[in-house]
Design a protein around this nucleic acid. Sequence first.
DNA 1: GCCCCGATGTTACATCTGTAATATTTATCT
DNA 2: AGATAAATATTACAGATGTAACATCGGGGC
Lengths: 325, 325
Amino acid sequence: MRRVTRDIPQSPRSSAAGDDADYIRARIAWYYFAGGLTQQEIASLLGITRLRVNKTVGQLRSDGSVRIEIRLPLSDCVVMEERLKERYGLAEVRVVPSMGENGDAQRVIGEAAGEMLEARIRDGIGVAVGWGRTLSFAMTHLRARDFSGAWVASLMGGLTRGSGTNTFEVATALAGQLGSDCYYLAAPIYVPTAQSRDLLVSHHGLAETLRRLRSADLAFVSCGDMSPLSLLIQTQTVTENIQTLRDAGAVGDLLGYFLDAEGRIVDHPLNERVMAISPRELAAIPDSILASGGAYKAPVVRAVLRAGYVKRLVTDEACAAELLK
Amino acid sequence: MRRVTRDIPQSPRSSAAGDDADYIRARIAWYYFAGGLTQQEIASLLGITRLRVNKTVGQLRSDGSVRIEIRLPLSDCVVMEERLKERYGLAEVRVVPSMGENGDAQRVIGEAAGEMLEARIRDGIGVAVGWGRTLSFAMTHLRARDFSGAWVASLMGGLTRGSGTNTFEVATALAGQLGSDCYYLAAPIYVPTAQSRDLLVSHHGLAETLRRLRSADLAFVSCGDMSPLSLLIQTQTVTENIQTLRDAGAVGDLLGYFLDAEGRIVDHPLNERVMAISPRELAAIPDSILASGGAYKAPVVRAVLRAGYVKRLVTDEACAAELLK
DNA sequence: GCCCCGATGTTACATCTGTAATATTTATCT
DNA sequence: AGATAAATATTACAGATGTAACATCGGGGC
């Protein structure tokens, strides 16, 4: 566990250049998004290339420096939110429209989840976070306020062979945004054997992080399905076990634990080796947000909801429709 | 004075078609702004023409259904805000970047002013509003909440020969957004003679509106300069008097009253015929926002600030720079 | 019933935008 | 100083976007 202070955004800029670049960024943001000037106009106004303007605009969009708020609720979605709340006894549900094949659902869900998360952050709060693409999108949509009294901890171990995504990225980013402390469950998500799990837990700060996690006020998690697209499935450890997991009735994972259609942890050796708090412990956390969508994830999401592991849900139309069938 | 209920947005839609069109609008908003789909993709997804998507996107942008928030403060502007606050003893100042020749300053200032206004609205509040292009832009940037206990009244009479802009539009729109009552100063801004002014005031609901105005909690106004671009200057009544007004030392108007560089009402017959509350009465309203910008308006704005007629200011860089000279 | 109006579709085109491949500058490290 | 990496400029181009002119459709008012 380390203290994270402020290593989030476009960092490696030195002295004068950094200020200048930030200044240009801010000006571009205003001229383009508020003023509606054309990229070429901005370029000549600022004496830089259109290309640079173009790139900066792209950055601004994705790094959350400009945020677009849509004030037109989609009636269908609102209806589904209510029905989901009632059907699964949830405290809050947000359904966003599904985007066709292209513009990926993950991002839109993540952004909506970020808003829900932001609304629940308060000073002194302890937040337990998982990882995954959806969650990392949420990070761009948080307003960076200072909550130095708060703390963040990662709910689950990391991947050793990082496939592009740093698995602690979400926790780091959140702690950075909040200016709060961050505790890592610095271990692989799957340890070699059940014994080594016990060994690790007794060791190090892992025990402390786990203790902290159990006293968290809010959990922010996603879940994975069984398709080869899933981040978790791509890890070697899981790939080796995928067939036996399927045979055991697994429909997907929550915090690395594979669940059956009813949300029960399936009987499989892999589930003995997970370095993360258990779904049952997750359910004991006072408040929690599950962010997952896409029709193909509906089976896992349904499993998680049926078992009552989480209190709030952010998903998309396609998944919501499946959940309501 | 009339009750305004809800006649703001894209109104003249009948029964089924209206719902359908709104539904399409909402979907387009999500697909385009949240999902980042291309207009063509959206068109085929929804089975409509790309053109229609294109037009709708344009509407969404300008009617405030989607709102873009920029989270990068421009250091220059922030500095000027502080200096203006100190120099003119203001409670709050907002300075937005000036847009080059194109993308008009009015809109950006208006939008910022809308945000400041929104922040100050509370249930039961009485808001006195003026009119002008800048203010009408502010209306698109208000979140429509319900403040049925609030009321809105127009601060000044209207133009009889409407040059495109309905002068009560701002009051109507604001009342509509708030779902509150709206009182109009239903008279021309310049009445024929000083006597007819007294006559009108004694008559009708005008007296009541004026009484209300004086008990308003918040005023939302703009001011005009002496250039031919100014809405007010374009009215025939003023055009006839422009030379004598200049000779009397006028640098612009506030609520139809022409002021000198120190903010004093200039000695001119036209100022006897204004149907509006006086600047002095405006100063007595507990809280007030002046939204005006552009370098060419600096003289009037300075006059208004010097005389202390308003408490808060929203302007742009160019004007702010002049004000600080 | 007929006409007019507004909303939408059709087509065509100029412009703006996103992206890649490549050169040049600038900062940083040894 | 020289080498290296990052940022920025240059050029080129396909695809997306905004706009205009005109056709078509459906409803409401006379």
